[in-house]
């Protein structure tokens, strides 16, 4: 039992004495980001001056809806390009590196809106995660002999993980037939197939029922014990408090506070910026799994709300709003 908690105590110890202020240096950072800025038209979605993530810890990234957490994830993992800024992972600069190379470098992410590959079986979803597969090159794919054995190994590992995540019974079902919570589990398990050094989970618990949440929490803690670093976004403060070693708070694109869970939760700035209005716990798990309120606003909230507002006050001339001429629809 004690050995099971070793990583936790190590992380807690390493972070214990640090001052609780934005951008504080960590003793053994795995990820360091500097001056990362991303603007959408007039809106600065992310403007992070300096942030470090301690190796082997569980770090929570919290902040109100639209604070820029997902955008920050997108930038770090190469899914979006920043306007400025640089960051290193394991001492290697990853700015401007393509998303798939980021994953291969050992930093794997999941998505806020789960991306289960619905028309693939659960087991194929898992197998896909394995890296360095010989059968994934064109010419060797034509010769089953060259990859059959590796495939068997990959399958064994996949089944292992599925057993751990209690999905083994669903192994041969299409991923599309899974429930929302099961998809979250599958996505996490699939990310682990990559054997990353660091996992970045975007709201892994959203839409997952309380019973399952406990087991998910267990999995996340286990990742730390397995030597991985975890950075995750979550709105449920109890849960964040429960499992994280360190909390980074984002607000309006920037890091507004950092610290150990106890200190951050007591920080008046955080309560103001984040917990203030909803202190009674209303923030827990905003919205459902597929469409949450945050996402509704995100797709160009400014224009939309502007337009909707204008409808109710007929003769007031409309103020010029950004993206006024925009008819684009988000591809779902």
């Amino acid at each position: 039992m004690d050995a099971d908690r070793a990583a936790r105590s190590r992380a807690v110890e390493a972070l214990a004495g640090l001052p609780c202020e934005p951008g504080v240096p960590k003793p053994d950072p795995i990820l360091i980001a500097d001056n990362v800025v991303r603007r959408f038209g007039g809106l600065t979605a992310v403007d992070v001056k300096h942030v470090e993530v301690q190796r082997g810890s569980i770090t929570a990234l919290i902040g109100p809806n639209g604070a820029g957490k997902t955008t920050f994830f997108n930038l770090l993992t190469g899914f979006d390009a920043p306007d400025e800024g640089s960051w290193t992972f394991n001492g290697r600069s990853l700015s401007g590196v393509a998303a798939h190379k980021v994953a291969r470098a050992g930093m794997v992410r999941t998505f806020q809106l789960t991306k289960a590959l619905s028309k693939l079986k659960v087991i194929d979803n898992m197998r896909l995660g394995a890296t360095g597969q010989r059968g994934e090159t064109f010419w060797r794919a034509l010769l089953p002999g060259t990859w059959k054995q590796q495939e068997a190994e990959v399958t064994a590992r996949a089944e292992d993980l599925l057993t751990r995540f209690k999905l083994i019974a669903k192994k041969d079902d299409f991923a599309g037939s899974l429930s929302g919570g099961q998809r979250k589990l599958l996505e996490m398990a699939r990310a682990l197939m990559v054997q990353p050094e660091m996992v970045m989970l975007d709201e892994p618990m959203a839409g997952v029922n309380p019973a399952l949440t406990q087991s998910l929490l267990g999995h996340v803690k286990q990742l730390r014990e397995d030597g991985m670093t975890v950075l995750f976004v979550e709105h449920d403060m109890d849960m964040v408090h429960d499992i994280s070693d360190w909390i980074i708070v984002m607000g309006q694109g920037g890091v507004i506070a950092e610290g150990t869970p106890d200190k951050v939760m007591a920080d008046p700035r955080v309560i103001d910026a984040y917990l203030g209005a909803h202190h009674d716990g209303a923030v827990k798990t905003v919205g459902g799994e597929e469409v949450d309120a945050g996402d509704l606003e995100e797709s160009g909230g400014v224009t939309l709300i502007g337009a909707v507002d204008e409808l109710s006050q007929d003769d007031v001339p409309s103020p010029p709003v950004s993206g006024d001429d925009d008819f684009r629809k988000e591809p779902a």
Partner: peptide
């Protein structure tokens, strides 16, 4: 740009779900 319906159209283009909700 200028009429109610036009604005509603832009709202739908921006986000049908939210437009419906409003």
């Amino acid at each position: 740009v200028g009429t109610r319906l036009g604005k509603a159209t832009r709202a739908v283009a921006d986000n049908p779900a939210l437009a419906a909700a409003s």
